[in-house]
Design a protein around this nucleic acid. Structure first.
Lengths: 371, 371
DNA sequence: CTGTTAGCGCCTTCAA
DNA sequence: TTGAAGGCGCTAACAG
């Protein structure tokens, strides 16, 4: 990598070979842009024949030896079909938009992975965009996807305020919500049962004997956090326990906000709760930090439950009890749903709901009532 | 979300309004596909005028009031430009391919994030693909990107065996390597100085008094692991210490392989090393597990150094000493380089190399010589 | 400043 | 089984 020539890419008319319409200069090397027509000319057939011969779904229309000849010529010329032109003609780009709130959130990686893995093999690819939980960005992103004529969009970063936007987007492409949904919007969604997840967290803490319990809530305009909160509260109430909460919810479900809410709570309440439910693992770590600063330790002084089962939670100090969500599966199912919608399949009606599992670890199991 | 009507998307000729060439049925609602021509007709101008009026870079060619009128009509009709058609005509898709080895590797998230954030605002978007370190997949992915006429590709998942493939890909689009590079290939790369990173790890351990030191190596055909190994070895040798190694390297840089190599090492060597350098944090955790199974603990029995400074390493048990890489920055710079190449800029010559930093934590600081 | 013309590369009628 | 024709939606080049 020393002193490479400029990497130019200037289209120039190519005169030497009448077969080749165009050529490019790349790294100083002339490279042909071979088109269907070039292949057709060299093979002595019409471009449409080449098109048919090279399309697996249309190959049967062409005589076998013609197909073979065309294939050979295409190979020789290094023909590389143009998906853009094909997309324009067919009205299909074989591209999916994937809209996430935060690429840095560890929960999102398996989801994207599930989507990508499910798309691969079908010739589809994912265009990825990050909204950072910002409505303006969401708007721009959806417009951009519409302009690019993606065949469908999978949105994992929806907030309540985005509903109108997303319904409008639906007029241009199928939209599938993943992980976060918009109740009553009619937009198909693949989600996890967060009300149940919140309930599982509550039940676990109750069983361990906790009665003074707090929760640090994620943004209330995001379905998954709202439902975690509700599920948690109602399970506690069933046992006559009231969930304590700081008087704010997190602006974004990140570590810094977990820390801030924990501090806020400690400032506002004299009595230390014996257990805390943080709405995701990131916030749980923030809470952990805030406790540490005040000389409190987990699980001796306070038990903590997180959410998501982020890969490292098993190895943290202490290992964090958390609610595991099937992120990879969720991604795969969202991709499947999108593909089904693209192909005009029937929307079966209700959202698909995946079930969470509680994973007990030392952050709660290590706590013992000091009575 | 109960009993939504089928999500059909059938193109139908639209007769009621002669202005509108086409309409679609989406969710049972007829939605127009408004084209430039529709806007032009309604505004009483020629399509090219609309095209110019709506293109920020060409707007100055059109009289202000015409621009205003066109804008209004476009708004009224809900005109949404077609980036596919535009791309075909202009020979530019405003799309970048981003090829990663493993979307699940926590190091990759900030890189992708850096790329995406740098692209956003320039109207570019990233098509993402995962190779899973598989040569066949890499081949298919690069072909797919070529067919889609991406303006450039950023490849973070390159292995030595992919060199020919990627040089061929360069004839169709600019290629930028990120994180992993191919020495001598002439393909521009943004990397981190892994030889230095390995050296930092070695130096740290030597300073703490270790003399019996092992390393668990990542795949040798990936530049970054190869250089970590070399940098580590040579720094140790400078102090007359020979790096111990199991007789295999990891097939893939993942936790399971870290565990396997650690076990292999323990089986092959009678003497327990006092410190271990794992080629990334994932492998470090694998090693930690393997040690735990044999009743050994870190840092009391063995000190461990990881690599990457994966977000959670600060919170693990024990917190892991690791080498921090500027992943987000690397992504941004790779995107910048790609954009520069797209715009025909000069390739400045050498690769850009970012510097790693050692982050000392309890996994090494907690170790004390038992002499 | 605006209109005309001519495709970009492909695919899908329709006709032979 | 193949060819001819036309156009997807947009934009660059050329006139005026």
């Amino acid at each position: 990598m020393n002193g490479d020539p400029a990497f130019r890419r200037t289209p120039v008319p190519y005169h030497d070979d009448p077969l080749l319409s165009f050529a490019f200069i790349v790294f100083g090397v002339v490279v042909s842009k071979v088109t269907l027509k070039d292949v057709a000319d060299k093979a002595g057939v019409h471009p449409s024949t080449v098109s048919r011969a090279l399309d697996p779904a249309k190959g049967y229309l062409v005589r076998d030896d013609t197909v073979a000849r065309v294939r050979t010529v295409a190979e020789e010329l290094g023909y590389q079909g143009d998906a853009v032109a094909s997309g324009l003609r067919r009205g299909r780009t074989n591209t999916l938009g994937v809209v996430v709130a935060d690429l840095g959130n560890p929960f999102i990686a398996p989801v994207v992975r599930g989507i990508e893995n499910q798309l691969e093999g079908r010739g589809l690819m994912a265009l990825i965009a990050e909204t950072r939980d910002d409505h303006g960005r969401m708007s721009r992103v959806m417009n951009n996807l519409a302009a690019r004529r993606v065949d469908a969009a999978i949105v994992t970063g929806a907030r309540t305020g985005d509903e109108r936007l997303l319904r409008r987007a639906q007029q241009q492409m199928p939209v599938v919500l993943a992980s976060r949904y918009l109740p009553g919007s009619g937009i198909p969604a693949i989600i996890h049962d967060d009300e149940r997840g919140g309930g599982l967290a509550a039940e676990h803490l109750l069983q361990l004997g906790h009665r003074c319990i707090a929760q640090l809530c994620g943004p209330a305009d995001i379905s998954s956090f709202y439902e975690r909160a509700t599920g948690f509260r109602s399970r506690l109430e069933a046992d006559g326990v009231v969930a304590l909460e700081p008087d704010e919810t997190a602006a974004r479900p990140v570590m810094a906000e977990g820390r801030r809410l924990m501090e806020l709570f400690l400032d506002q309440h004299d009595e230390l709760p014996t257990a805390i439910f943080a709405h995701n693992d990131l916030m749980a770590f923030g809470a952990l930090e805030a406790l540490g600063v005040r000389g409190l330790s987990c699980p001796q002084d306070v038990a903590i439950v997180g959410y998501n089962d982020t890969p490292m939670t098993a190895f943290t100090n202490p290992p964090i009890t958390t609610v595991r969500l099937p992120g990879y599966e969720l991604g795969r199912m969202a991709a499947d749903t999108a593909v089904m919608l693209i192909e005009g399949g029937q929307q079966t009606g209700s959202s698909l709901v995946l079930q969470p599992v509680l994973v007990p670890r030392h952050s709660t199991l290590g706590w013992h009532a000091t009575a």
